[in-house]
């Protein structure tokens, strides 16, 4: 059983500190994901709060039959998809995209021109991500960034692995076509992500650095 599942079960038994630990471990990653889903910092923060509120409500009913992260992201994903389907999304606060953009202040420590270039490339990528159909966006992010298996993405989206494979591929293919200028590598095929899976968020964070 993964550490998060153990924390969640401990929380279900009344250990409130376990809830705080789960928030500390997953809050930032989930917020980043939600922000990419709804393209609005303030709405993503609301959804983050709502997700953890629901985690709290469900504390005694959590069963560790899947990874905690799969369950957590399923709640967050459903809330985000519902938010996106509202006829006219009413945002409780003004958008803070400019100041709280995920691309802000990235690549600190680089030379100024590299920093500017990195910001521009990241901003372009964020825009293209936002243009993807929502389920493609979810599937690609969960598989490519969060390291979910296709089975876990399928569980999150309540669909089949076969369909997830198609969603991820279409998203990846679209981005490859829209942003052909991306390089920044020697072009060698990357090793598979299997070794990066099994979800210790802190380990994932280390790998992203």
């Amino acid at each position: 059983m993964d550490e998060d599942a153990e924390l969640m079960l401990a929380f279900g038994r009344g250990d409130e500190a376990a809830f705080d630990r789960l928030f500390a471990r997953w809050g930032s990653r989930l917020l980043g994901y939600l922000q990419r889903m709804v393209s609005d910092a303030a709405t993503a923060e609301e959804l983050l709060q709502e997700t953890f509120l629901r985690v709290h409500r469900a504390r005694t009913r959590y069963r560790a039959d899947s990874r905690f992260s799969t369950w957590l992201y399923r709640i967050g994903t459903n809330l985000a998809l519902n938010e996106l389907r509202r006829p006219r999304r009413q945002r409780p606060h003004a958008s803070r995209d400019d100041e709280a953009s995920p691309v802000a202040l990235h690549a600190a420590g680089s030379a100024p021109d590299q920093l500017a270039q990195a910001r521009q490339g990241a901003a372009e990528l964020e825009r293209e991500l936002a243009r993807l159909p929502e389920r493609q966006r979810v599937a690609l992010w969960l598989a490519a960034v969060e390291g979910f298996s296709y089975a876990e993405v399928a569980e999150t989206l309540a669909t089949t692995e076969k369909w997830v494979k198609s969603l991820v591929h279409r998203a990846r293919s679209t981005l490859a076509e829209r942003l052909p200028a991306w390089s920044g590598s020697d072009g060698a095929p990357r090793p598979t992500r299997a070794s990066q899976r099994q979800g210790d968020p802190e380990e994932g964070e280390r790998q992203r650095r």
Binding site: S28, R29, L31, G32, Q35, A44, A100, P102, V103, A104, L105, H106, A107, G121, A122, L125, E126, L140, W141, A144, V145, R172, S173, L175, A176, L179, W182, S183, G184, S185, G187, P189, R190, E205, R208
Partner: peptide
């Protein structure tokens, strides 16, 4: 296709 992932991976944490 791999370049997409290489671009996604360094996107900053939020």
């Amino acid at each position: 296709l791999s370049r997409v992932d290489e671009a996604l991976r360094p996107l900053p944490e939020t």
